[in-house]
Amino acid sequence: MTAQKGKDLLIKIADGAGYATVAGLRTRRLAFNAETVDITHAESANRWRELLDGAGVKRASLSGRGLFKDAASDALMRQTFFDGAVKTYQVVIPDFGTVQGSFQITSLEFAGEHNGEVTYDVAMESAGEVTFAAA
């Protein structure tokens, strides 16, 4: 496989008619995390930590940073944040597949320099099962 263009990694939000690409993003990030359940005990081999297979909470985090374009997807993201709603999102990873699941926006920030453009940062946390479909 060859290297992929970062601009082709897309975050999409369900808009009622399908999925809309979140506008203006220059950077995007998807992270998966899992907690461990430590089951180490006095008889663990040489006191090495033991972990319980398949236990613990899994979660996914989405984040992005970009230009505020005042597009329809910007309005949908703002309203989703203010409503505290959980929406379905897709993350398209080029030549790899699509990650899909319910997420809640946990942070939405806007910034602007006097002689620059308005930018925004968004962060989301999974709110249910996240699935993967290979490309």
Rank of each mutant, 00 (worst) to 15 (best):
R28S: 01
G18R: 09
A123G: 08
D95R: 12
L108A: 11
K12H: 01
G112P: 05
P94F: 06
A3D: 11
V130W: 07
R49F: 00
L25G: 04
S107K: 12
S73C: 08
V130G: 02
A60K: 01
A55L: 02
H114L: 08
R59C: 09
E109Y: 01
T2A: 14
K7W: 06
F103A: 04
I93K: 08
A134W: 06
L76F: 06
K87I: 14
N46R: 12
A85F: 01
S44Y: 07
V57C: 11
R29K: 15
T36R: 15
K5T: 13
F68A: 13
D83L: 06
F110A: 03
A135M: 12
W48C: 03
R65N: 12
N115S: 12
M124N: 05
V118Q: 11
R59A: 12
L67N: 10
T27R: 10
S61A: 10
Q100M: 13
W48E: 13
R65K: 08
F132K: 07
G116S: 14
F82D: 09
T88I: 12
G84T: 11
Y89M: 04
K7A: 11
V57G: 07
A3P: 03
V37I: 15
D38I: 03
L9G: 02
A3V: 05
Y19C: 12
Y89P: 01
E43I: 13
N46M: 05
S44F: 07
G54K: 15
A45W: 08
A72M: 02
T36H: 10
M1H: 15
G54P: 07
L108T: 10
A133W: 03
T106I: 12
F132M: 13
K69F: 00
A123L: 10
Q79V: 03
V37T: 11
T88D: 08
F32A: 10
L30M: 10
E117P: 11
L25A: 02
S126M: 01
V92A: 08
D83E: 15
R65L: 00
G64T: 04
T27F: 09
V130Q: 05
R26E: 15
N46F: 04
A123F: 06
S63F: 09
K5G: 07
G101Q: 07
G16S: 06
D70E: 13
V37W: 06
A133Y: 00
A14R: 14
F96N: 11
H41Q: 10
A17S: 12
G97P: 09
D121W: 00
F110M: 05
L10K: 15
H41D: 08
V92P: 00
K69R: 09
G66R: 00
A14V: 03
E50A: 09
T2V: 09
A23T: 07
T119E: 13
F132A: 05
R28G: 03
F110W: 09
V118Y: 10
G116P: 00
F132E: 07
I13N: 04
W48Q: 12
G6T: 05
I13V: 15
D53P: 13
Q4F: 08
F68C: 11
G64W: 03
A127K: 15
T88C: 01
D8L: 13
S102W: 04
Q104A: 15
R29L: 08
K58G: 08
P94K: 03
M1S: 14
A42M: 09
